[in-house]
């Protein structure tokens, strides 16, 4: 197990190195390497997650180590999908380091877990966790695309065509990729939340219990819903959409970590360490 964790970290590290080198040297071979190495890392990573699932019959979110590891896994999955669909290789300079740092932090945490409750293997629970994580990962990439958009737009507006101007894709492409990530993220988040409600109903007998996690999840959902709504109606795009997707991601991060550490609530057990 520990060997696999080290293997995943090394592969993600290599992939990160390839993508950063690609940013500087713009050699196509580098991002191809980054892509395949990340894919290899993802396979090892999936093996870890599946192993836990098979051994204990529970989703591996029993402590902060497993939760972060699953988040890293989701980032890698969504990035590879986006990369495949959009050929937006430059996002690798966010995705690979993000997956890497999540894994590195995770690996430093204790592995002991609390008692496994049988509800961890409930269908709705698994659906809830996987959907929300994939959704969050998509939002993370949208945030990355937003940052790149702002950098590139700044270069074009200020007519200071520096290091990034030649290396980054066009504004429209970054905007479109960010938008797609948000649509995907929103779809998964919505599905994940619905699964969560159903799961809550089956465990606690009610859909909604005003838990801080629930409230903040609703806030996050509304923020992204607002972003999508504005885009579809008045055509919020470009700079404003980019800034908004970065802010929205900050809200999401708070919902993910901040609520658990600061406000407590019924999700606390997933981030214990």
């Amino acid at each position: 197990m520990e060997d696999l964790v080290s293997a995943v970290i090394s592969l993600y590290l290599l992939s990160t190195a390839c993508y950063l080198a690609y940013l500087f040297f713009q050699k196509d071979a580098l991002h191809h390497f980054g892509y395949y190495i990340l894919f290899a890392g993802l396979l090892c990573h999936s093996a870890i997650i599946i192993a836990v699932f098979v051994q204990t019959g529970a989703m591996p979110v029993r402590n902060l180590f497993e939760t972060l590891s699953l988040a890293a896994w989701a980032v890698a999955v969504v990035f590879l999908a986006v990369r495949h669909r959009f050929k937006l290789k430059i996002l690798g300079i966010f995705a690979a380091p993000a997956a890497l740092s999540l894994m590195v932090v995770a690996s430093q945490l204790p592995r002991h877990t609390g008692p496994v409750k049988d509800i961890f293997s409930s269908f709705w629970f698994v659906l809830h966790v996987v959907s929300v994580f994939v959704g969050d990962a998509a939002f993370a990439l949208a945030c990355g695309a937003g940052i790149l958009y702002l950098v590139q737009e700044r270069a074009i507006k200020n007519k200071s065509r520096g290091f990034f101007f030649r290396r980054l894709p066009s504004l429209e492409r970054l905007d479109a990729a960010g938008y797609t990530c948000i649509v995907v993220g929103f779809t998964f988040l919505t599905a994940g939340l619905i699964a969560g409600f159903i799961y809550a109903k089956s465990v606690w007998g009610r859909f909604w219990s005003w838990d801080p996690k629930e409230v903040w999840s609703a806030v996050t959902w509304l923020v992204y819903a607002a972003l999508l709504h504005e885009r579809l109606t008045v055509g919020w795009r470009g700079r404003r959409a980019a800034i908004f997707s970065i802010i929205a991601f900050a809200v999401l991060l708070f919902t993910f970590f901040g609520v658990n550490f600061l406000l407590k609530g019924h999700h606390g057990e997933f981030t214990r360490f």
């Binding site: 590139q152 074009i156 101007f165 894709p169 066009s170 504004l171 429209e172 492409r173 479109a176």
Partner: peptide, 8 residues
């Protein structure tokens, strides 16, 4: 070339 950096 600039136009291509704005529009894909």
């Amino acid at each position: 070339e600039l136009a291509k950096k704005i529009f894909e």
